[in-house]
Amino acid sequence: MSLIEVENLTKVYGAGETAVTALSEVTLRVEVGEFVAIMGPSGCGKSTLLHLMGGLDRPSSGEVVIDGEKLSRLSDEALTRLRRRKIGFVFQFFNLIPVLTATENAALPVTLDGVKPAQAKAQARVWLEKVGLGKRLDSRPDQLSGGQQQRVAVARALVADPKLILADEPTGNLDTRASEEVVGLLRQAADDWQRAVVMVTHDPRIAAYADRILFLRDGVLVEEMHLDQGQTGSADRVMDTMRQLA
């Protein structure tokens, strides 16, 4: 059984004449240790797909199963608990709490889960060391660069040992170097720490870090590309495919 099973997922916004189909009959699977990128032109439904996979939104029809749990059957509370324990999120705008330190921000998911503060912080420190921020543990977000802030966010996504990492344009607000660092961390999460990583991006060079790329157009899954991380030129292949879709 795959870690994520998405079956015939459809999302329609609005009703009647103004109804807009954001996602139509999407089916896919993601395995443990796999890094999947989702690409497509603006408005193709890639973010909607990510939101539905993360239980942030409810589908119009279809089903998302994460680690054997059908999201449609979960209450708001159970869904919240599932997000807290099984999913780690990385957002485009970092979304760190400005008044908390790097350690406290990274510790949030475990703190929210009721872990004692000292232990939660210890866990957070371990992950901050791993993402290379061992020297900025007590810095506030406004004392960190964008790349550093996003690395705190990655540590936060990993701290609760979730099986799945969902990243929504994680490099959208970063320069090239910081982008590469962050996506490198996501790659590491899949390879070294055996997490399933699903990332939405529109940057072919960033997408090229994935094992597999899913292309969406008008809410429909239109193409799937497998990449070999040993090979070069992956980014160009991705760009070609994007051009064909556009």
Binding site: T80, L108, P109, A157
Partner: peptide, 8 residues
């Protein structure tokens, strides 16, 4: 964000 990462 807090709701997304699991705050009830």
């Amino acid at each position: 964000m807090l709701r997304a990462i699991g705050a009830s």
